[in-house]
Design a binder for these strands. Structure first.
Lengths: 226, 226
DNA sequence: GATAGACTCCTTCTTTGGTAGGAGGCGAGA
DNA sequence: TCTCGCCTCCTACCAAAGAAGGAGTCTATC
């Protein structure tokens, strides 16, 4: 059937989760590792591996760095995080790094088995109870504006700047925003003037210094508040 | 059974998705809205609403701002995004804002129904095919080279690329390196070809992904060692 | 109703960026 | 020695970027 590996430095926990899997997903072949190095070693050797259950907090891998290392070394290997950490942020970051799921250690065994089954069938699992809670009110709004420049850009100009930052040409931006290329040029010229630079490249450098994404979100928010 | 609302400004698409749901999840009560304002209005009136299918691209809500507004106005209402946009980043941002799922418009009907069913049972749905792909862009910092591209650049090309990354023009680079502008162009063309991109802006994006500074230092070190 | 700003688009022009191809000099290694 | 890769520079040409100036629509505001 499937081959799974459990990477956790607590033998007791490895045994516990192995028992749950044995009972709930019979026929699975289970490997165990007590460190990231060991997991990497075994995973490299074993081609049939279907899924790695990775604990955050291995001795040789602080936090998500272990996941990152794994994704770089063995991109083909699906990894699901199993952790006591229930921070929304950690969960999202894990998914961003390419994890196929995130299972809190507090998950009841039925839910855990269902999650693993879903993942083995190709789905992504996130803990519903945590993710469905509204975000715990983000810090929001930096009152002091480091760059009066960026603040003076209009909504459309920000949209254009965002695309500049992705390396888009005027032509492509025109297509994406469904406006004429000449109009894009007009916007770009305005952006350059307001930012006090002379080329799109420099505009991009200024933009990502000031964290364009944040500003875009703020702009959207302001529009809605009004 | 369940009450769903579809918010999309294309009547044809609303009808299409309504037909799929009618056939696949019989007994569901379906509402429709063609704008964010309309969706907010109906959702406020209808207490029994279980799930909102929200299109990105409504006339009165650019991108994720609509989701943001909904989450603030009606935090109790589960929202699933239905969009043509398949960017990992967009998907993650949507989940971060509290969406309970993200369904690309290209999803086949069976998968769409399964996703909706899962969501109605409390799960989170993310498109596996997109999320399981390794992130396209990630700062690496590992010794293992994910970008054989950059490694293939010669010393001079790296010098040029470093200046490109600071926003320098060909002319300026020529002055700084004391070579002809045509030579700079030759280098730039070589860089673009090796990095597989078509403009200096894109080259810069690739470069600072791969931490150019580190690489430059390494290169200088090698030269000194030799 | 008038004013101002934002967005749209146009033409014209110059500068910059980028490709293609050829060519000479130089140093390392077969 | 001869070859190969890198650096250098050239011409010629084309595409993209950006400046300048004018102009129409719409919306919000006074």
């Amino acid at each position: 059937m499937h081959t799974l590996m459990i990477a956790d430095d607590h033998p007791l926990f490895r045994d516990a989760i192995a028992a749950v899997i044995d009972a709930g997903l019979p026929g699975c072949h289970l490997l165990q590792a007590d460190s990231l190095a060991e997991a990497l070693h075994q995973a490299t050797a074993c081609e049939a591996l279907d899924l790695l259950l990775l604990d955050l907090g291995l001795p040789d891998a602080e936090g998500l760095s272990g996941l990152q290392a794994l994704r770089e070394a063995l991109p083909w290997l699906p990894v699901v995080i199993v952790s006591a950490d229930q921070e929304r942020h950690t969960i999202l970051e894990a998914i961003d790094l390419g994890a196929v799921g995130y299972i809190p250690k507090s998950t009841p065994r039925e839910a855990l088995l269902a999650a693993l089954a879903g993942i083995l069938e190709g789905r992504i699992y996130l803990p519903p109870d945590i993710m469905r809670r509204p975000p715990a009110t983000r810090p929001s709004s930096s009152p002091a504006d480091l760059s009066p420049h960026l603040a003076s850009l209009t909504a459309k100009q920000l949209e254009v700047l965002a695309r500049l930052s992705r390396g888009a040409s005027n032509k492509l931006i025109a297509r994406e925003l469904d406006i004429a290329e000449t109009t894009v040029k007009t916007h770009v010229s305005a952006i350059l003037r307001k930012l006090g630079v002379t080329s799109r490249v420099q505009a991009i450098l200024v933009a990502d210094q000031a964290d364009l994404a944040t500003r875009l979100a703020q702009h959207r928010k302001h529009r809605l508040d009004a």
